[in-house]
Structure formats: C-alpha cells, structure tokens
C-alpha cells in the first residue's frame, strides 16, 4: 500500500512538470491549430541554457530558469514571426505544411545543440539532487517536489493571464475563432507571435525544472515532444485544464508502471494510456466535463 502511495505521489510530481511542457504545446495548438513538433526541442534548448548557466556561472537551475524562459520566449516569437507567419500567407501552402516546418525547426535546433555540446549525456550537480523529504513512510524527492510546485504556480499564472488580462483575452478569442477575432480588431499575427513565445517559455520552464532530475542530450527533445503530444490529445486538443490533468495522468502511469511492471518500459506506459483514451474517450479529458455543468458556471 505504501509502495503504491509512493509511486502515485512521485507520478503526480513528475506529471506536473510534464503538464507544464504540454500546456505550452496546447496553447500553440489552440491558437494556430497545428501540432508544434519542435516543442520538445525547445524544452531541450531551455535545458541546455539552464545547464550552461549552471556549469559556467554556478547559477542554480531554479534561478537559471528565469533566464531560460525569456530567452525561449524570444526564440519562439522569432520562429513564429520570421518562419511560420511567412508561410501562413501563402494560399498554395496547406496548413499541414506548417507542421512540416516545425519538424525542420526541430532538426535545426537539435543538430545545433549537437554541434555545440556533442551527443554526450550531461547533468547538473546540485546539493539537493538526491535529497528526500520524509513524510510518514513516504519519501519525496526534493527536486521533484520543488519542480511540481513551481510548475503549479506557472500553470496558475497562465490561467490568470488568459482569464484576466487584455492580451490573454485576445489569445483566447483567436483560439476560439480566428476570423471573428479579426472582426473585433485583434491582429492575428501579433497574437500568434506572443502565443508561440509563451508556449516556448513554458517549454523552457518545464525543461529547467526537469534538469536536476533528467540526463540531458540533444535528442531528449523527441521524448518531450512525444509526451507533450500525447498529453495534448489526452487533454482534448487545446484545453489547458485538460492538458494539466492529462500531464498528471501520464506521470502517474509512468510511475506506477515503473514500480509494478518494469522500469525499462517507462516511456511506453504513456502510449498505452494514449491508446486507451483514443479508443474509449476520443474527445479527451475535456469531454468529461458534464454537459449540465457546462451551462452555467
């Protein structure tokens, strides 16, 4: 029983950080209606920035995060402004090709990092990396606990931003109906640039939070793209609340699978959940909200 609880809690902690990454992808998905296959690569770049700040300047990853985030915001905004927005205008190019473009961006980012850092596995040394907090019979990893709560704060901040601010409303309106948003006087290109920047910053945050726990190498991005993709679909394409719980679910399944089945298949359990959801709940977690509750809030 204690084993189970332990695995469950570890899964939730890990899932919170996955959720942060996936919410970045979901945000971009919601506004642009495309899956950003460079998302994991952006996580990876965020991790390398945090890594370099740590080994070169001794900055703690949780502080490096606040440099990695704005840097990735800028990188994401520039990718949207200079690359993706340019092909949106061309009628002859199908929207699907925006997705192909993100694959190209993924390759460029991954290979650039390989050029700079080679394919070596790297990790940061922190005093707390292997520390645990003991509560009852359960031990909580310190970096996972911090990572979870920081991720939670970011999710809440994003929620407030989207709900309460002028820019947040512009993003939501564009996600709901891009044409109608233009009738209202919302500039769609500006919105996509800001959204891609925000999504990238969240990817960087997730990466920085996972750095004390994960090994880092250029191809780790693929892993995050796959996870974020699964979580985004699990959440119900474009639903941020859905993606948050989707992230927790994937984290829990990975952790339970690693405890009870085998550690080696850790990344497969998520795919199993994914298939089950596609089979039995094709609308994603979002569709679980009762229609009756949808009416009045």
């Amino acid at each position: 029983m204690l084993d189970f609880l332990q695995a469950l809690i570890w899964g939730i902690l890990l899932g919170g950080m996955y959720a942060l990454i996936a919410i970045g992808m979901t945000l971009i998905m919601g506004v642009m209606k495309i899956i950003n296959l460079a998302h994991g690569a952006l996580v990876m770049v965020g991790m390398y920035i945090t890594y370099v700040l740590n080994v070169q300047f001794g900055l703690d990853p949780y502080i490096g995060l606040f440099i990695a985030m704005p840097t990735l915001f800028l990188l994401g905004a520039l990718i949207q402004l200079l690359l993706i927005n340019r092909i949106i205008d061309v009628d002859a190019i199908l929207p699907e090709n925006q997705v192909l473009l993100t694959v190209g961006i993924m390759v460029v980012l991954t290979e650039t990092m390989r050029l700079l850092f080679h394919s070596d596995y790297r990790s940061v040394q922190t005093s707390y990396a292997s520390e645990n907090i003991h509560i009852g019979g359960i031990s909580l990893s310190v970096p996972m606990t911090i990572g979870f709560f920081v991720a939670l704060v970011f999710v809440l901040l994003l929620h407030l931003f989207l709900k309460k601010t002028h820019y947040g409303r512009m993003i939501r309106a564009t996600a709901e109906d891009r044409i109608a948003a233009q009738y209202m006087g919302i500039p769609p290109k500006t919105v996509t640039v800001v959204t891609f920047g925000l999504g990238s910053a969240l990817a960087a945050a997730g990466g920085a939070l996972l750095l004390p726990i994960f090994y880092l190498w250029p191809d780790i991005g693929h892993l995050f793209t796959a996870k974020a993709f699964i979580i985004t679909i699990l959440g119900g394409l474009g639903s941020i609340v859905g993606a948050f719980f989707g992230g927790l679910l994937i984290g829990v399944f990975e952790s339970l699978g690693a405890t009870y089945v085998s550690m080696g298949y850790k990344d497969v359990y998520g795919l199993v959940v994914f298939l089950l959801v596609l089979l039995f709940l094709p609308g994603g977690l979002k569709s679980l909200r009762f229609p009756a509750l949808r009416r009045e809030r």
């Binding site: 409303r169 309106a173 009738y183 006087g185």
Partner: peptide, 19 residues
C-alpha cells in the same frame, strides 16, 4: 454571428472592446 462560444457573455463583450 461568430460569437466566441466557450467564453462567457461578459467576456465576449470585453473582447468587443479592443481598441
């Protein structure tokens, strides 16, 4: 009409006031 269906009445009105 093209309302923003997932946003509340109030939020739709707020989005109407953009400038």
């Amino acid at each position: 009409r093209r309302l923003f269906p997932g946003m509340t009445v109030r939020e739709n009105l707020e989005v109407g006031a953009m400038s």
